[in-house]
Design a protein around this nucleic acid. Structure first.
Lengths: 193, 193
DNA sequence: ATAATAAAACTAACATCGTTAGTTTTACTT
DNA sequence: AAGTAAAACTAACGATGTTAGTTTTATTAT
């Protein structure tokens, strides 16, 4: 019975809520259907399959991440902007770990995903880098380095890899960001030659 | 029939080989059993469950990674050692991506895993850092930063996040390592004050 | 108001998966 | 030769993603 009249957006929203509260690991289509008071098979009227649903959630996650990042760097420049950007990134990863995980599971191999999500993921850091006197190629490299540091830190902390020693994790994070700023300034000097 | 007389090590070895050739994603106990010419239920005579098998494979991966790292830094010091270490790390991640992925899925929350694997994962970089004049706390932070950079870079490249632009990935990687060395030298100066 | 259509739900089923219980067979030890 | 423990088996359970085909509902057009 077409009682509720659910649509694609409802499904995706419910899936996101479920993943955030129960964890990506325990997510299932049957449980999702159950929460929407429909049968699992009915989901397929709205989504192609589970992969497509994950992809959609990944797009959402990226747009959310972009949003907080752009908000953080507004009216800031250079080192201050870098710190604000990374802080926003770090906070997002810590506060919404399950949704964050979906981003990396996005099959970037597919061209459509690269084009739809690629730009959004790169734009904030590229904006910050444009405040530095760097070549386009330098910016590309540095953008990759930035994302590596941030993602590496977040995912290792989330995985529990930093729990072995009782040294303050927040301070390690600050040092990582400081290292990136050092590299930035160093690259700027190189570019001016 | 106790025909082949398989043991725990055989199971683990076969699982590793299967994951490396077919991918972690498509791994299953039933397929593993099939390749060993036994039934899936028979696997449970040797392993407790799938999680335990993954844990075991994670230990193997960490020990392999440690091996190539220690080999790489032998008789090297400071910047040269850092580069050799990261190169070994990077090559391992690129050449054995499926096995590498298992490391991060290790449930570090459990205390036994932390103690058994934690030290092995940290030892090589700590050895290299001991060649710098740093406090113990600095070393702890820098070790985390190093692992973040390396893991972040490897996993993003593997996920396809670096394919969007045609800028040389290897050069981005070199810049990341150079950035870490910069931070190292900078930290050393700070420590001497 | 009624008929047609498309959307949204359903039932039923399949293959696959991890896992458990209980049983049989093999190989080694005594 | 008998006993024992390891290593395999069969059979089944519950859960998962997914497909095919069917029924119901809501909206639109006549």
């Amino acid at each position: 019975m077409a009682r509720q009249g659910l649509n694609r957006a409802d499904i995706i929203a419910a899936a996101i809520e479920m993943i955030e509260s129960e964890g990506l690991h325990s997510f299932s289509l049957r449980e999702l259907a159950s929460r929407l008071h429909i049968k699992a098979a009915s989901l397929y009227n709205h989504i192609k399959n589970m992969d497509e649903l994950y992809t959609e959630i990944g797009y959402y996650a990226i747009s959310e991440l972009k949003k907080v990042q752009l908000c953080a760097i507004a009216e800031k420049e250079r080192a201050e902007a870098v710190e604000a950007l990374s802080d926003a990134y770090y906070r997002f990863g810590k506060q919404r770990p399950e949704i964050y995980k979906v981003i990396l599971s996005l099959p970037m191999v597919k061209n459509d995903a690269i084009h739809k999500a690629g730009f959004d993921i790169v734009e904030p850091i590229m904006t910050v880098l444009s405040g530095y006197m760097l070549t386009e190629e330098q910016k590309m490299h540095l953008q990759r380095v930035f994302r590596s540091i941030m993602h590496g830190f977040i995912s290792q902390e989330e995985a529990g890899c930093f729990r072995q020693y009782s040294v303050d994790v927040e301070e390690s994070y600050r040092m990582a960001v400081r290292g990136f700023i050092l590299l930035l300034e160093h690259s700027e000097k190189e570019a001016q030659i």
